[in-house]
Design a protein around this nucleic acid. Sequence first.
DNA 1: TTGATATATTCCCGCATGGGAATATAATAC
DNA 2: GTATTATATTCCCATGCGGGAATATATCAA
Lengths: 117, 117
Amino acid sequence: MPRSATTADVFNAVAEPRRREILGLLARGERSVNDVAGSLRVNQPQASKHLKVLKEVGLVRMRGSGQQRLYSLNAAALKPIHDWVMTFAQFWGESYDRLDEYLQELQEQEKQHARKK
Amino acid sequence: MPRSATTADVFNAVAEPRRREILGLLARGERSVNDVAGSLRVNQPQASKHLKVLKEVGLVRMRGSGQQRLYSLNAAALKPIHDWVMTFAQFWGESYDRLDEYLQELQEQEKQHARKK
DNA sequence: TTGATATATTCCCGCATGGGAATATAATAC
DNA sequence: GTATTATATTCCCATGCGGGAATATATCAA
């Protein structure tokens, strides 16, 4: 079995540095494909391909506007990575001492949310 | 140019699900290769290979003990992922409202730390 | 030394990759 | 209609992948 496809999940999609750059750019607002390509000094087909991968895993949304396609960030799709990495925050020394407390509060909030359903 | 090597950086190393499982296991303590292989229902060579990748990017440490090699987690190596994903936390809606505040406090602490040098 | 156990390495394979280059599709303007 | 701009797709290639299987290395025990 070969390596997982880049579109297999968010972890794989985000392993590529240029795709992280694209997400960073889109964090500052919606952009057309050529905007992205220009800002990242990448030619247009590569930009299209990277955006396609990001779209397939839900990290970006697309809408048409004339002949342009405007891509925007869907940062919520990064939550699996956030949640996973936070699992290890307890090992990161004193600066992160209060993170456990914070995460427990978050869990409480989610439980209350679930109960309301 | 092909896809980045799995040992290129932490993002690539961690894109593989089994390697994330290994890290999760090691979070609970040091383990031998066979312990890892047994817990994850993976045969020994695969466990060795995955551990090798994790070691190359600094996510695990190894020490010999008799004929065993004991691997342990080095969670600090996950910080690049943590820092990157936190860049997007502001987009995650109301549950994370206090995260900005929290992160600013962290930055303050780091500045004070730096000043003390 | 021989044997047993623990771990690492090597060879194989099918396969998805990211980039380049060229081309195809889509939408607007005239 | 044609021309132009914006985007997507296709084809190519070299490379590294993860898993299987077999083998090599290392360490202890008797």
